[in-house]
Design a protein around this nucleic acid. Sequence first.
DNA 1: TGAATGTCCCAAAACGTTTTGGCTTTGGCT
DNA 2: AGCCAAAGCCAAAACGTTTTGGGACATTCA
Lengths: 347, 347
Amino acid sequence: MKSKPKGVRRHVTIREVAKAAGASVSTISAALNNSDYVSADMRSRIEVAIKTLKYCPNDLARGLRLQKTHSLAIVVPDLSNNFYIELVRGVKDYSASASYTVLIGDSRESWEEERNYLDSFHRRRVDGVVRVPAMNAVGGRARAVLGNLPVVYADRHPRERDTYVGRVGVDNTQAAESATSYLLSLGHRDIGIITGDASSGTSRDRLRGFISAIRSAKIRLDRSAIQAGHNDMESGHFHAMQLLTRGQRPTAIFCTNNMMALGALAAIQEIGLACPEEISLLGFDDFYWATLLRPRLTVVRQPAREIGMIAARILIDHIEGRVSIPTPALLKTQLVVRDSCCPPKKM
Amino acid sequence: MKSKPKGVRRHVTIREVAKAAGASVSTISAALNNSDYVSADMRSRIEVAIKTLKYCPNDLARGLRLQKTHSLAIVVPDLSNNFYIELVRGVKDYSASASYTVLIGDSRESWEEERNYLDSFHRRRVDGVVRVPAMNAVGGRARAVLGNLPVVYADRHPRERDTYVGRVGVDNTQAAESATSYLLSLGHRDIGIITGDASSGTSRDRLRGFISAIRSAKIRLDRSAIQAGHNDMESGHFHAMQLLTRGQRPTAIFCTNNMMALGALAAIQEIGLACPEEISLLGFDDFYWATLLRPRLTVVRQPAREIGMIAARILIDHIEGRVSIPTPALLKTQLVVRDSCCPPKKM
DNA sequence: TGAATGTCCCAAAACGTTTTGGCTTTGGCT
DNA sequence: AGCCAAAGCCAAAACGTTTTGGGACATTCA
């Protein structure tokens, strides 16, 4: 009655390996973490036992004992946005090189979902998380669900007062300012901007850069030319429509993220305006198929992959006790000029 | 000397909650899994203890004890392909509704990477995995690394002889056949096809459908019009170039996945051909920005999200012992006619 | 007045690892 | 001979949960 395996075969443990190899449990463990003394003979016996039994280490037990899982988590707001895929891959690649494993969360810009992910990762006892907070995470206290897990923020700012271990992104103000200057230099005087939600520091920075560029060009700032979207295609479309159908149509639109640029492009095509001849369009974030669009999109490119890699580095360094002070890392952006901007038509 | 916390604060355990609430460890556990008898008074005391101590359950210990983690894994070959994002979201959404958690792997069409993910998931003791095997996973024995974890295959076939618990995708042969018939009905007689690697059953099926349609139209099959790519943009571009620059240029190209369709479109634009007037282009897999391209891409659409949901359902049903027989589920595809195909020019 | 049944709680054993401290041998050195 | 260090191995204690098999009461029933 005790030897009934009851249908479902369980996993083979280190103990059975020990039996098969004629060794003790502790010796197997020593062999696995190839440290300590273990004779060549014993080692090979253990190896064949592992092979024949198809032993697979249990990371739950390991993590429990070690109080450390050698794993990170990353939560991004939108996996269908290629920018975040690249960022995730950066995190993943750096982590792999430091033999950390990474868990991915896709919050879809929802704080509810993000909280679920953060909680789940915390319960799994990841060693740290890189976080790109969801847009609507304003009221949420991420700290409450994260305990004292080390966090590094990537791309977006921490919204709440939160303690973090690092922060990495681009100089959004400067990037937006120089992008706007580019439009100004083409001769545009009436420029619309579609920003992300004002609750986001990143959006605010980009807007600030825009305004600053307009101001230093001594142009009157038209408040109604500032539209606050939600970083998705729909709102890009909607707000572009707003801009394009009002009395005085702008000659250029600056979108502060790629999804909204796509939505704006859709709106432009829908209305039947010629881009860039009748309306210039400038996006934020590059993506691999931007050159497939007609016109090929002019954008300011962020080093997504690099942001991810640096975030992972900061996090892992901290976890392993190599750095103590918070390091805000500001990376360079790059204006990628393609076909979607040109001088405005003379009227 | 024993009370030195040594810098890093550890996580609070159920034991400390017990102390704070004046209860025993087992009572806390009972309260957490809100079952059994636990008085209202005790329950509330426990709740405040949990709140004030910021207790977060340890899923490692839980999984270890329970021999079950309530989590699934999904491994896809390319996260930057929107089709797989939708699929992942399907898996995620269904799983969430069954209160399972899901881990995501992105193999980038590399068997090495896929193996790493599968291994890592196995060590984490996920309860099952839905797998979309990497293209080059031909020689790999996934079973060797998966032990007897239940697997359901999604989108692509199992390559090796593998035991699986379910399989879900579309009827690729039929889909390709009817897509080809559509091109034939437009009047095309010289159609090129860019397929995925021949090692993939899915690619083979689609090619088979193509050939079958050509045959039943009593058209001579031109072997050189069949190009085997690797499901990425580069090879789509390359093979489209091959097709477009040879002596007798086809009047239509059928790409059996969306990435290759993009590559082909790039090639067409590069050469300066008018699409669809001079060359029709038909893709496989729809994506949210397909309508932003000029021409808007005509594609055969797979219900990506639904595939994911069904895969998750099959897997979870099996895990919880609700189904026994392997169920191959074949979903319907849909031809989404847009602007990239038209009748061929008369010569 | 027992006995039976509920209700509420607890101690201890398990889950699969790693680590600590110790136990034999062996061989080399005085 | 006596001693010591090193090499090779092991038993047992943790890590944080859940579950099992009770124990101590209070209430109800015959």
